[in-house]
Design a binder for these strands. Structure first.
Length: 268
DNA sequence: TCCTTATGTACAA
DNA sequence: TGTACCTAAGGAC
């Protein structure tokens, strides 16, 4: 379930549960066993997150985690139960444990390797001080559809399929519009909105994008929470009525992912 | 029990 | 553009 807000939240959660104390590190599934042995018993002394990349710092290096599409982190209270055979990484401390399953990446890397990852990622709305101008320089020169640019982690880090669909809806922007046809004001508004939405996402650990005046309650419709855990305008709402205009939400494939938008509220 | 689907990315052709 | 990879849940049989 990972967009950038999930990863930043995980960084905070790891620090809160394990920071400053030695932990047991194992790989019940086996693929991370050699590296786990190198950090087992060390102190978690720092965490970092950039886009969808999570970094856990130990004396021996950084554990680089990318959840991909299927990866999941589960926390629990100590004592940890026997792990199941799909647990790639288990970290167990005095009061809590975490199990990582199904990640695209779980690897022990060096400081320079970590730096190289930061260098190939675009600015992240959740990293204080990241510069939206860096993203604007690429967006404003590109003929690529803005919906594809928002998902390109080299342009902008942390936005995934939900935030891209929702932020374009909130700004009434057609997903197929070329990046170079966005105005500077539109880009600044999108960035500011992502900063606010994703910070809320970290705080609440879910994606909510519907403005108070558009909630079902405010619109006189029955209350509802979307089945991915938050309240949204268009994501996975294909063929359902738009919260604002009542027209049908449309879906189409774009860059191997499902795109959702309202053709009435997001005119070309 | 099998099939589909999913908030992602990398690499081959 | 297609395909491979990692896992689990839900729905169709």
């Amino acid at each position: 379930m990972p967009e950038g807000h999930t990863i930043h939240r995980l960084a905070e959660d790891h620090l809160a549960r394990f920071g400053g104390h030695p932990v047991r590190v194992t790989s019940p599934q086996g693929k991370f066993s050699d590296s786990a042995a190198l950090i087992d018993g060390q102190v978690l002394d720092g965490v970092d997150a950039h886009g969808k990349h999570l970094f856990l710092g130990f004396g021996a290096g950084w554990v680089h985690i990318h959840l991909g599409l299927f990866g999941k982190v589960g926390f629990g209270d100590a004592p940890a139960p026997p792990p199941t055979d799909t647990v790639r990484l288990r970290i167990a401390g005095a009061g809590a444990y975490m199990d990582l399953r199904g990640p695209t990446t779980c690897a022990l890397i060096t400081g320079p390797e970590k730096r190289a990852i930061h260098e190939r990622l675009g600015p992240d709305p959740l990293r204080d001080g990241d510069d939206p101008d860096k993203a604007w320089r690429r967006v404003s020169r590109s003929r690529t559809a803005v919906a594809a640019l928002l998902m390109d982690q080299k342009v902008l880090a942390g936005v995934g399929n939900v935030y891209r669909a929702e932020v374009l809806f909130r700004h009434g922007i057609d997903p197929y519009r070329a990046g170079k046809d966005l105005t500077r004001a539109e880009w600044d508004a999108i960035w500011a909105d992502l900063v606010a939405l994703m910070r809320e996402g970290v705080r609440d650990n879910r994606i909510d994008t519907v403005r108070p005046e558009h909630t079902p309650e405010a619109m006189g419709r029955p209350p509802r929470v979307d089945d991915h855990g938050g309240e949204v305008y268009v994501y996975r709402r294909a063929t359902l009525p738009c919260h604002i205009c009542g027209g049908e939400i449309r879906t189409a494939g774009l860059a191997a992912r499902n795109l959702f938008w309202c053709p009435t509220c997001q005119k070309p």
